[in-house]
């Protein structure tokens, strides 16, 4: 069957996630039909978040771990809104600025969520939330040793990505642009370099603001994208989740289809033969229709 037949038959609807048949993303020990990972932060309510997750078709969602307010424990838990039979959890170490802090967070996250998957974030600069790649490599090594499946958030830097792969990362997740900015792929060349050189899946994480950004990342050959703010802060998060899903699917299909090479000179798409002229063309051997003959 042609890989595009899903589209041809118009089956881009609700289920199953992912539109190209048999196109499965493998990360460590898990297979994903959807190449859109979602964050759960910044939603107006847990209910809207749950609807957005469903509309996106995602199978992997990120969460954070934090100290609870013991004096006034919340009555409702985020986990009540995440159907664990549909979505795998990917707890993060957001907020960590040192290796030790990130490693502690990861262990507490494993205890509270029951998953040994971790989105490793070690931030080196609070204004840009730029990852500290040296610390991230170090923490990756430790956590892999401790039995974690580590998906590190990193900068679009080839060498950092190579070191993370060597340290045992199950995927590398370069940023498109700083977290929460929605500026898209500011360094698509850097991302492309990483995609070409590492053998683990490359997930573009952070900064994607629109479905066109998600599509662009997928066209470049990213294995998946991770999106939070662009959906949570859209006027209609559920509709935007749907749009992001379509952007990811379009970009992925385009990548599999193999895009044309760009070229400088124009090349007509229509036949250059038989172009209709201003006046009816005449064969040169036909005699002229003159007035003398009529007279």
């Amino acid at each position: 069957m042609h890989p595009m037949s899903g589209f041809v038959n118009g089956q881009t609807g609700d289920a199953p996630a992912g539109s190209v048949p048999n196109d499965v993303l493998i990360v460590a020990d898990k297979a994903f039909r959807s190449r859109l990972f979602l964050g759960t932060g910044k939603y107006a309510s847990n209910r809207i978040m749950a609807e957005a997750l469903a509309a996106s078709g995602t199978e992997l969602v990120t969460v954070s771990v934090r100290y609870m307010n013991v004096e006034a424990p919340e009555q409702e838990s985020l986990l009540d809104y995440i159907d664990r039979s549909r979505y795998h959890l990917l707890p993060n170490t957001a907020g960590a600025t040192t290796v030790k802090q990130a490693v502690r967070m990861a262990h507490l996250a494993r205890e509270v969520t029951g998953t040994h998957w971790i989105k490793l974030e070690v931030v080196g600069d609070s204004r840009t939330l730029w990852p500290d790649t040296a610390m991230t490599v170090e923490a990756t090594r430790i956590l892999v040793e401790d039995g974690f499946v580590v998906l590190p958030y990193t900068s679009p830097d080839l060498v950092a990505a190579l070191r993370l792969e060597e340290a045992g990362a199950a995927a590398v997740m370069p940023l498109g642009s700083p977290i929460g900015t929605g500026q898209g792929l500011l360094d698509w060349v850097g991302i492309t370099r990483i995609i070409e050189r590492v053998s683990v899946p490359v997930v573009v994480d952070a900064g994607l603001g629109a479905p066109s950004h998600a599509a662009q990342a997928m066209e470049l050959g990213a294995a998946a994208v991770l999106i939070n703010t662009a959906i949570a802060q859209a006027r209609d998060p559920v509709l935007m989740a749907h749009a992001m899903r379509q952007g990811v699917e379009a970009g992925r299909a385009a990548y599999l289809a193999g895009r044309m090479r760009p070229r400088q000179e124009a090349s007509p798409s229509s036949p250059t033969e038989g172009i209709i002229r201003e006046r009816a063309p005449r064969a040169t051997q036909v005699r002229e229709n003159t007035g003398a003959e009529l007279g």
Binding site: G39, S64, R66, M68, S77, L78, N92, V112
Partner: peptide
């Protein structure tokens, strides 16, 4: 004692 719970996050 530290008591940690899951919260929303990206």
């Amino acid at each position: 004692v530290e008591i940690v719970r899951v919260m929303a996050g990206g």
